[in-house]
């Protein structure tokens, strides 16, 4: 459809907002093609926000599960985060990783057993005393619209206690948003699209999830 000038004028003067275009599923064919260098959404080193060989590189990994507890082999995940100092990156170059520029954004597809892996750094708090988190968005075949959530770092328990989102959830639900730190320094964060351990998914102002009031 075309947004006509009247609609545009009304939106720009604050009279009537434009209604967002609906989302649709990513479908099954976003991510693999034999014999081509660079096709579809995944790209070389898309999941490496930093080189995994860097001493401060953190492995962020987990598995995406469906409502039967089975891993989903065709999901795509993106993360977006502050750097280690809590600064919001605004450097271009995510799609052509030079190994040095931290852009804060990464894209990973899950493997045949539903597992994703990013190489990144621990985000710093964006403000003094704030609980650091990595924003995660999930797409999958069978999932008709995107799902947003947050991956909180487990360490700063005082900040987690004070966090507005976490403190609005009961303990069971809250735990789905906090990553587990393993002995090797990596972060483990599973995503459950449905079921008893269903991850808390977030609805931000401006987008509707019908029938999910």
């Amino acid at each position: 459809m075309r947004i006509d000038q009247n609609q545009l004028d009304a939106a720009r003067s604050g009279d009537e907002r434009l209604v967002p275009t609906p989302g649709q599923t990513i479908g099954p064919f976003f991510g693999y093609a034999d014999g081509y260098d660079q096709v579809h959404l995944p790209f070389r080193d898309g999941n490496h926000l930093v080189n995994p060989a860097r001493p401060d590189a953190v492995r962020l990994t987990g598995t995406v599960y469906d409502g039967n507890g089975d891993p989903i082999p065709d999901a795509m995940l993106e993360i977006w985060q502050a750097d280690a100092e809590g600064q919001i990156p605004q450097e271009t170059g995510s799609l052509v990783r030079d190994g040095w520029t931290f852009t804060g954004w990464g894209r990973a597809t899950v493997d045949n057993v539903g597992t994703y892996t990013f190489s990144t750094v621990n985000p710093g708090p964006t403000e003094e005393g704030k609980a650091p988190f990595i924003h995660l968005v999930v797409f999958a075949r069978g999932l008709l619209n995107k799902l947003h959530t947050r991956i909180y770092l487990p360490e700063d328990t005082a900040a987690l206690e004070k966090d507005a989102l976490l403190s609005s959830l009961d303990a069971d639900r809250r735990s789905t948003l906090i990553a587990e730190r393993r002995a090797d320094g990596s972060l483990l964060f599973d995503v459950h699209l449905q079921g008893e351990k269903e991850t808390v998914f977030l609805q931000f102002p401006g987008i509707e999830y019908p029938d999910h009031a």
């Binding site: 995510s94 804060g104 699209l193």
Partner: peptide, 23 residues
């Protein structure tokens, strides 16, 4: 089996969520 059954949790966007990666 791939859709959440619990209500979406209303959240206010914070810091990083008010920005997008630059391309």
């Amino acid at each position: 089996y791939r859709h959440p059954t619990k209500s979406m949790h209303h959240a206010d966007p914070e810091t990083i969520e008010l920005w997008s990666p630059a391309f």
